[in-house]
Each structure stands twice: as C-alpha cells, then as structure tokens.
Design a protein around this nucleic acid. Structure first.
Length: 637
RNA sequence: CGGGGUGUAGCUCAGCUUGGUAGAGCGCUUCGUUCGGGACGAAGAGGCCGUAGGUUCAAAUCCUAUCACCCCGACCA
C-alpha cells in the first residue's frame, strides 16, 4: 500500500529553528523527520522512523550474513556489573545511574560488554560452542557533557552493538575481520561514503581498533591521513614518524614505535633560526606575568605589555600528571606512593594522555595509573600550577620528565618560572637542565612522542609521507577487546586439552541514526532545496506528485503507485490539496530519490514526468513504461 | 563544569534602552478568485510574554532568584 501524504504525519517547515546549525539537523527538522524534546532527546516522526528502519534492515541483513545472531538485552543494568569491570569509574558521569525503590543502583546501558559477557557466561562452557557473535539494535544512553548537532550527538541514541567470543587470538582475528567486512558492506549498501581509520580504544579497552568515518566538515573527530595514502588514524591514536631532537637529547630519546629510525622525511625542525644553536646567548630572565596561566594568556601579555611578539611554538607547555601503581586507589590523593609526570610539549601542541601512559608503562614495565594532577594535590605539593617550567622536574626525586621531540630542541624558550605569576625567557635545555642534572634525575628523563599528531607531521610509515588533517563523523567502531571483560566477569571455557581458558572478545558498534545524519551531511546528500537520500535508506523510494489529485490524474497516480508497490518499491503519494509549487518544494525538501509528476498535460500524450532528486532535468515516459523505467533508475541511485 | 547568548502565537522574529490594555511575516480556519516551482483578496482563531518573587498606581519591559534551550571551551561514540 502506498502512503498518502494527507494521512500520515510529515510536518515540513519553511524555516529551520534558529538553534539548529548543522545541515543534517536543520534538514531533518525541516523535513519533519524528527522533533526535539530536550537537549539530546529526539522523537522520530514517520519519515525519520522509516529511514531509520531502512538502515536497520541493511544492518540486520549484513550482520546475519556475517553469522552474527540477534538478541535483545535489557537497558537497565545492575551497577555491580559495572563495578566488577571497573568501568563505573571509567565512564564516570557519562553513565546514567538511577536508584530503584529498594535503593539499588541501576545503570542505563551506554553499551553492553558487561551484560553480554554475563549472559554468555550462563550457557557457554566449551570451546566447541565458539566462535559466537551476538548483536542487537537498541537505544543507548550516555550522559554527554554537551549533546549537540541534533541526532549526531545525543544522550539517547540507537546503536547496533555486536560482541564476538573466541577461544584464541586467531579466532578473534577472524571474527573481527568478518565484522570489519560486514561494516564495509553496510556503509556501501547504505550509500554513505566512509573512511577507515586506526583508532584509540578509549574506555572500552582493547588492543586494536578501527573507526568508520563519514568524511564531513561537521564531524567532531579529527582524522590524520598520510598524503601517501597508506595511513589514516584518529588524532587520539595517530602516531608520528621520527622527529629529530637536538643531539644533546640523544641519550634520552625513544624512537616512536613503528617508525623507521632516523628518517628525515617530512620532519621539520623549529623554524626559529635561533634553535640551530644550543649555545645560550642570553641569560635566563624572569618575567612578571600576572594571572597568565595559559599559553594564550602569556602570548597576549607579551604582545601588550612586553611589546615583543611571542608565538605559542616558541613556548614550552608543561603539563602535570600524577601516577600511581596502586590500581585500587581511584583517587590519587589517597594512593600509597604517587609520583609525578611532568610532560613538556611545544606551546602549540597538545599532550596525548594515551601516549603518555604508553611511555610510562614502558618505563615501568607494568600498568601505571596516570591522570591529570588534581589541583589541590599539586598545590599541596608546591607545584606552581599554571607557571610550571621543565627545570622544576630534575630538582624533585618524585618526578619524571617526559619531553616531546619538538620541545627537545635547542635555542631559547619561554617557559613557566616555577613561581606563581612568573615565566622565564631564554630558557635553554642544555644550560638550564642538562648541564646540571644529576645522574639520578637522568634516569627520569625521557624524550618520546607524547603529543597529538598535527597536520604536517611525518607519517609513521617512515616513507616520507606527510600527515594531512580532515574531519569525520564516526558511524562505526570495531575493537579487539581481548580478555578485559571475560576475565573481570570470569567467562572461561574448557579447551580441547581440558584446560580452562579465558574467552577473547571483540565488540563492534554502529550508530544507526548517525548513518542517517551522515547520509545527509555527505556532499551529495543535500542542496539548497533539501535532502538527497541514497535510494537504499530513503524513507520512500518514489514520491508521486499529482498536479491535482482528482479524476484521471488521481487514477493514473494510484495505478502507477500500485504497479510500483507490486515490485516492492515504496511510494508516497502527495494527495494534499496544495498548489503544485508547494508539493514540488516539499518533495525536494524530504529528498525522495525519484519524483513522478502526474498531470493533465503529460497525460494528454499518455506520459508522466520522472525526475531523480539528484538530477536537474526530468524525462517524459509513457504511463505503461513508467514503473519499469523507475525500477531501472532506482538501481542507479 | 567555566564563559557567552536566548526564552514573546505552531515556525521565524520585532517590541524591552525610555514601564501605560500584545505585534509582524509564515503557518492554521472559513469564503471567493486562482492552480506545473512555497498564489491573491476578505474575514477569523491562536499568547498569563519560561517560572517564582520583588520594585511600582501600573511590568513583556526594571531588579533578584530559578528553570530550559543554544553557542564556545574543557582528553567524547
């Protein structure tokens, strides 16, 4: 049965609400697909729901084809599960927690690793029952800092999540690959362009991870790609190739992992000419910089008060972290033996905590708990927060000094003075640190990649490639989890030699409503007149626009609709008593791939007018041929 | 959470500085004329001006508090 516009609910809007800023949000609102209830909560109206259901159908088809089995798990999850895996703390405020009438805490599921593991534990005892991959499509809840961009980042959203269970790493690799391939087919089927990038696994945990991104300037994720085309990664994960340090730092340097040693490919030394020399030609000089605790503040201050131009890349940024081996103490202030890590990067760079953790793990050969130093703790320990400089570290035996290669350069730097409201200029590593450093402190000095990669950095492939930056919308994410959850929740099975072994997991997520937004955000997904859907996920494949819904036009429109429906093509008939112009505008706005105009004019010659939404011109086709022609056309859209 | 902004009709917004009985366009209802790219005319319906206090003879307007939403930022799928 075709849908009649007048009988359904498609409240199109001439203007978008002022608070909608990104194209997908504006157009979904204007097309009458969604309505906002609160910050990050959206209702799906019939048009939006239909599109979402199309996506779900594609996802189900490919999941089933890949051998995954569909289940449906509860949204309400006992908080104990989250405590057992330690993720209650990891998720922090992002986890919605509610209290039931008995005073028990329950989490609103943001994801289902714990529940799935717990479920599978109940009935999987033998390696013979593996591999197993389960999936579900469900509403997830995350208490985002800041929901935004409509359906792109909401607190309540739909996700297809899948979990694989294998007896060994080879099995995991296979399961992972099967999902990876299925994801490629899903995004291809849905007609959304995508890129696959290496990703940080974040609070989910795990060893390997890829993200599926729809390239788009409105994306919140930053992707770095080698111009050689052989490497792409999320900025949170992205490695850099070898970046040369000043020779004086050689004994402390750690080559970035995976990079070819001593490649001088795209590495750029500081542009500042003075950096060529390690010899100080100016004395270390303290400058009074009241209330200038950030790089930006200091630069402004120098410009306005000192009268000299200071660029962020001429400064050293000193970030203080606190570490502990005591994994039970979630609060470092209560840990038994905390120590500090002072991370130094160039003023225009950002410290990457995951990389910093990696380096600390290497230094200790075990997991260290590392986090930004809480303000109170740092002040109590006499750190001049906001005004810390690198030379503070060697004087303290509780502090490691980690320096990024780009900061480990000669010449002069502006840095914190280790005294409130003061910075120093003419800071020089050789004179102010290396010359006076004790042997003991040398053990705690490491030069290594600890910052986020930026455009212009050398590719980690070490082939002379240079990284370029783009933005993307994350629509899918696959992880090799390992045994994090199965160990925490004790999911073990007997293997073929009767040994109990930890089951190895993978997990795989797709944001189904992000696919919708991604389809609209893609360059071909919208124009001045509205949405342009890929046929696979369009709410309807065909819209029939009768010029006036009466008499022979009405009959012809209904006949055609019936023929199309008989071929499995879904049809929307715009039967409203509106002027043709209004119907054309609305048809364009909601973006149905094929529009058929039925009017007296064409009918006089036995024709209807067929126009793909993406085309600028229509073609006249005889009434008899219309259904066939439309079916053909749809295959190309 | 820090900074900024906005709450007036279903939507987009004016009115607020300088207090004095609530406005426009679009949409909606009825009638008429229109009818192939958001028609025209006429007549209507629709708002305790986010909420609560306060100042005042009088508050959409001034003050205080509070709530909601949006934007920017802070290691977010």
């Amino acid at each position: 049965m075709p849908t009649y516009w007048s009988k359904t609910l498609i409240p199109t809007l001439r203007e978008a609400p002022a608070d909608a800023t990104v194209p997908s949000h504006r157009l979904m609102l204007r097309a009458g697909m969604i309505r906002q209830l609160g910050a990050g909560h959206y209702s799906y109206l019939p048009l939006g729901l239909r599109a979402l259901q199309k996506v779900m159908a594609v996802v189900r088809r490919e999941m089933d084809a890949a051998g995954a089995v569909e289940v449906f798990m509860p949204t309400l999850q006992p908080i104990e599960l989250w405590e057992q895996t330690g993720r209650r703390a990891d998720y922090g405020d992002n986890l919605f927690v509610l209290t039931d009438r008995h005073g028990r805490e329950v989490a609103l599921g943001p994801t289902h690793e714990e529940v799935t593991t717990d479920l599978v534990k109940n009935f999987v005892d033998s390696y013979k029952q593996l591999p197993l991959t389960v999936y579900q499509i469900q509403t997830k809840f995350r208490d985002e800092y800041r929901p935004r961009f409509g359906v792109l980042r909401s607190r309540e959203f739909q996700m297809k999540d899948a979990y694989s269970f294998d007896i060994d790493v080879e099995g995991l690799d296979k399961s992972y690959q099967a999902m990876y391939d299925a994801y490629c087919r899903i995004f291809e089927s849905c007609g959304v362009p995508y890129e696959i990038v290496e990703a940080e696994s974040g609070p989910i945990g795990g060893s390997a991870s890829h993200e599926f991104m729809v390239p788009s300037p409105t994306g919140e994720d930053t992707i770095l790609k080698s111009d050689k085309g052989n490497y792409a990664a999320n900025v949170e994960k992205c490695e850099t190739g070898d970046r040369p340090t000043h020779p004086a730092f050689a004994p402390f340097s750690r080559a970035p992992k995976g990079s070819a040693p001593a490649s001088h490919g795209g590495a750029k030394a500081r542009s500042d000419e003075a950096s060529a020399s390690m010899d100080p030609t100016g004395d270390l000089e303290k400058v009074h910089t009241p209330h200038c605790a950030t790089i930006e503040d200091v630069c402004d201050f120098f410009k306005k008060k000192v009268g000299s131009k200071l660029k962020p890349q001429s400064m050293l940024k000193s970030m203080l972290y606190v570490a502990t081996r005591d994994s039970d103490a979630s609060d470092p202030t209560e840990a038994k033996d905390p120590w500090y890590v002072l991370a130094i990067v160039r003023g225009d760079h950002e410290v990457n905590l995951a990389k910093l953790r990696d380096q600390m793990d290497k230094a200790f050969g075990e997991d260290a708990q590392l986090q930004p130093a809480p303000e109170q703790l740092a002040r109590d320990d006499k750190w001049a927060l906001g005004f810390i400089g690198p030379h503070a570290a060697p004087t303290r035996d509780d502090t490691y000094l980690l320096v990024d290669p780009d900061a480990a350069q000669g010449g002069f730097w502006v840095a914190g003075a280790n005294e409130a409201d003061h910075h120093v200029k003419h800071f020089n590593w050789q004179r102010d640190v290396l010359d006076s450093i004790s042997d003991d402190a040398k053990q705690r000095l490491i030069v290594a990649d600890i910052r986020n990669a930026v455009a212009g950095d050398p590719s980690p492939k070490g082939d002379g490639g240079v990284l370029e930056e783009t933005k993307g919308i994350e629509v899918g994410h696959v992880f090799k989890l390992g045994c994090k959850y199965t160990d925490a929740l004790d999911l073990k099975v007997l293997d073929d030699s009767n040994e109990r072994r930890s089951v190895i997991m993978g997990c795989y997520g797709i944001g189904t409503n992000r696919i919708l937004a991604g389809a609209i955000e893609r360059p071909e997904g919208n124009d001045d007149n509205g949405i342009i859907w890929p046929a696979a996920i369009a709410p309807y494949q065909v819209i029939i626009t009768p010029i006036k819904f009466a008499d022979q036009v009405k009959d012809a429109a209904c006949d055609l609709a019936r023929d199309l429906e008989a071929q499995g093509i879904d049809v929307l008939i715009d039967d409203r008593e509106e002027r043709p112009g209004v119907k054309f505008k609305d048809a364009d706005l909601i973006g149905i791939p094929v529009r058929v105009v039925v009017g007296d004019k064409g009918l006089k010659d036995g024709n209807v007018e067929i126009k793909p939404r993406s085309a600028s011109d229509a073609e006249m086709v005889s009434v008899d041929q219309a259904a066939t022609r439309i079916a053909e056309l749809l295959k190309t859209l």
